[in-house]
Design a protein around this nucleic acid. Structure first.
Length: 714
RNA sequence: GCCAAAUUAGCUCAGUGGUAGAGCAACCGCCUUGUAAGCGGUAGGUCGUCGGUUCAAGUCCGACAUUUGGCUCCA
């Protein structure tokens, strides 16, 4: 028993709150101020707890009845506590032996709690405004939160404004989030009007959602600050911020509405979802909104139209792009460089048709498990007489959704020797997939696209070395296109849904893991995420504004070699089955194009830019001079134009700037007199009076070295 | 595929039942200019398509197409 100085809330029935405790090192120290509270000395039983801070763990003695808030909640940025490894409300009473750590709103967990609490405020606002709305679930998600509701009419943008206002009021009123453990029957009784919540209570560990989970059912009541009345409640496992004032009124925003299936299952009824975002302060909200704006500016669909690169004509169909001349140049340069690198890496180039008889996809199994993703067949050559009798059986032709079966036929076109392995068959193979109408999205999810596809056939012994070389090859190539920041994702076997022996899977997965680890990049496990036919590694790349894109995939396949009965003759004369590796480094050219376009915001490095140099004469008198410069650049393989339109030169600069040409070469009387040109770069910087020879060699070297050029050299 | 919203000139967008508009781009002319829009003129639309309501439809209703945001899917 020790004597402690304790603070008592005026008029409160709450137990004494100790504000001092004795640290193990001896002595006492203040825990933090509790302003405006009377203090009084109490004799209270003590508890021994471990306080974890950035500095380390220390033992402390506190009075019985001490809450996590008392111990670690002094700072408003602390929103919850981690007690014995679990996130708990700050109002939680501590128990002897607890390990307690403050969780800041700036930490990922703290932020998620803030967002989840904001979702509760949204739900309360919705039920205040639309009393008939039934509650779905409302978890935190990346950058924010959502809450699903069952309502008769979908929410409108105007509704969102009203709801946002109501949320501000709730937040400002400072309602306390109070946790209450209930029995199942109590919960059922209280939530009789909430059919979806009732279903959650019923689901036995099936649904892993914020609402239920853990050993007990809990309801969070919202308690009014002014009179202590309960104004709203929700089934929720928590935890929450202590009260709604922890939510900053101008740091959250409702973003959009959308429909969503109950528990994400297409077979379930559809609910109306409201997405919101919430942040610790308004600066972070502002930064997030700015990021969204930046992303919108870089949207490849928008830039594609603005820069005249490609379009999706209605007449052709959804998800089918045409490349315009400027986009065609970029695409060709991308392909050319990729081809060159593949040639150097000992790939062999093959070419296969876009359509095939159905028999091929029966053999590969695609018609069994991928038919939904394929365009329906073209029926050819059937001949039916007037009586309806089939005189000649027709044949179904399909557009190919994948290249692998065709490559297998190339492998199988003659007997193969172990001496030929690894055999690497490469093709820019155009495939067609009947993506569901709602999922088509610009170049990143198209119905027709070209893969930089290769299939590598090797022996099991060669597999490790081949994968190792392959990963190095991929990363090296992606870096040449200006992507620098990668991590790898390893998808492992789903035992429920896979073919091949355990032994082969284990070996292959290990081999992939080792190859990945050698690269020294972060490796994320995607447990059970592999296709049924083999484990996979994918390369995820971060773009200039920090978004990650799945780029390359490298996939082992134990299924197709079997189905196609692929064999090679080994050194000992026996016939052996090769290991097959599928790999696409760009994923698809279209997708990679889109990623690069967004990464560079349209300002491609000179080697990829559709127009690399534009000559801008000050007056018409300088046209011929620039034509001569352009001729010399063209001789070096540079894509150059001279703007001889009627516009004034300022206008030409503006036009060139908007089309993001890396080098503007301006020439007037002074330049002509000196045999020079003046550079203007994309950031507006200048470099004047550069001798023509030097200008040409600078441009040529920037292109040859594939470097990005935004501004005048320092 | 499902839910919602959108679709008007090449592009961006006005136009709330009564004679289709603007800016930019295009074309023609004038201007001859030193680092982000010189001036004037001309032309350009079956208002996504089809159907319905109405004396009258870009506008109201329905179907379809396409796009966008989500859900589901992306092996």
């Amino acid at each position: 028993m020790i004597i402690q100085r304790a603070a008592v809330l005026r008029g409160s029935k709450a137990p004494p709150r100790p504000v001092r405790w004795r640290a193990e090192t001896g002595g006492t120290r203040a825990l933090g101020s509790i302003g405006g509270l009377r203090t009084k000395e109490y004799a209270v039983p003590e508890l021994s707890v471990t306080l974890v801070t950035a500095a380390g763990a220390e033992q402390a003695s506190v009075a019985v009845g001490t809450t996590a808030m008392d111990l670690v909640g002094g700072d408003r940025s602390v929103v919850v506590a981690r007690i014995n490894g679990e996130l708990r409300d700050l109002a939680t009473d501590l128990a002897d032996g607890d390990t307690v750590e403050a969780v800041s709103v700036e930490s990922p967990e703290g932020l998620a709690v803030l967002r989840h609490s904001t979702a509760h405020v949204l739900a309360q606002a919705v039920q205040d405004t639309f009393p008939e709305a039934k509650l779905g679930i409302g978890p935190p998600v990346k950058d924010g939160f959502y809450y699903d509701f069952s309502v008769e009419h979908p929410f409108t943008p105007e509704d969102l404004k009203v709801l946002e206002k109501r949320m501000q009021q709730i937040v400002k009123s400072g309602q306390r989030f109070a946790r209450r453990v209930v029995t199942e029957s109590e919960a059922r009784h209280e939530l009789a009007g909430e059919p979806f919540k009732l279903r959650l209570i019923g689901s036995e560990g099936g649904a892993d959602v914020m609402e239920v989970g853990g050993s007990e059912l809990t309801i969070y009541d919202n308690i009014q600050a002014k009179d202590g009345s309960t104004c709203w409640g929700d089934l929720c496992r928590g935890p929450h911020v202590p009260d709604t004032r922890y939510i900053v009124p101008n740091a959250f925003k409702l973003m959009r509405t959308a429909a969503a299936y109950w528990l994400g299952d297409q077979a379930n009824e559809q609910l109306q979802r409201i997405y919101g975002t919430a942040w610790p302060d308004k600066e972070q909200l502002h930064a997030y909104l700015t990021f969204l704006e930046e992303a919108e500016k870089r949207d490849h669909r928008k830039l594609g139209a603005e820069l005249d690169l490609f379009s999706f004509p209605d007449e052709i169909g959804s998800g089918l792009a045409v490349f315009h001349p400027k986009g065609g140049v970029v695409r060709r340069v991308m392909e050319d460089y990729s081809r060159k690198r593949h040639e150097e890496a000992d790939y062999e180039f093959v070419n296969t048709p876009h359509i095939t008889k159905g028999a091929l996809f029966e053999k590969s199994g695609h018609l069994d498990w991928y038919a939904e993703g394929m365009y329906p067949p073209m029926q050819l050559d059937s001949d039916i007489d007037e009586d309806g009798h089939v005189r000649r059986q027709g044949v179904d032709y399909y557009l190919k959704p994948m290249n692998c079966p065709m490559h297998n036929l190339v492998f199988d076109a003659r007997g193969r020797s172990y001496r030929e392995l690894p055999l690497r068959l490469f093709e820019f193979g155009t495939v067609y997939r009947y993506e569901k109408s709602g999922v088509v999205q610009g170049m990143t999810r198209a119905r027709g696209f070209t893969q930089d596809d290769a299939h590598i056939y090797c022996t099991r012994e060669q597999m490790a070395d081949e994968l190792d070389k392959l990963l190095t090859f991929v990363l090296d190539l992606l870096r040449d296109y200006g992507l620098e920041d990668f991590y790898l994702e390893l998808s492992t076997r789903d035992p429920e849904k896979s073919v091949g022996s355990d032994e082969v899977w284990v070996e292959a997965t290990e081999v992939l893991r080792e190859a990945a680890e050698k690269q020294g990049l972060d490796l994320v496990l995607d447990e059970g995420g592999a296709a049924f036919y083999g484990p996979k590694i994918s390369v995820q790349a971060k773009d200039a504004i920090g978004r990650t894109w799945q780029m390359s995939t490298i996939q082992l396949d134990f299924n197709l070699p079997e189905r196609f009965d692929l064999e090679y003759q080994a050194a000992d004369g026996t016939r052996q089955r090769p290991v097959m590796i599928h790999r696409a480094l760009f994923g698809s050219i279209e997708r990679f194009f889109a990623v690069l376009l967004e990464h560079y915001a349209g300002a491609f490095p000179p080697w990829l830019a559709p127009v690399q140099v534009i000559g801008i004469p000050i007056t018409d008198d300088h046209n011929d001079y620039l034509y001569d410069v352009a001729k010399r650049l063209k001789a070096e393989g540079i894509r150059v134009e001279v703007d001889t339109s009627d516009d004034r030169m300022q206008k030409k600069i503006r036009t060139a700037q908007k089309s993001k040409v890396p080098f503007m070469l301006i020439a007037g009387d002074e330049d002509v007199a000196n045999g020079a040109v003046s550079f203007r770069y994309r950031d507006g910087s200048q470099r004047n009076g550069v001798p023509v020879d030097e200008a040409i060699s600078d441009i040529v070297s920037a292109v040859r070295n594939r470097i990005q050029v935004e501004s005048a050299p320092a």
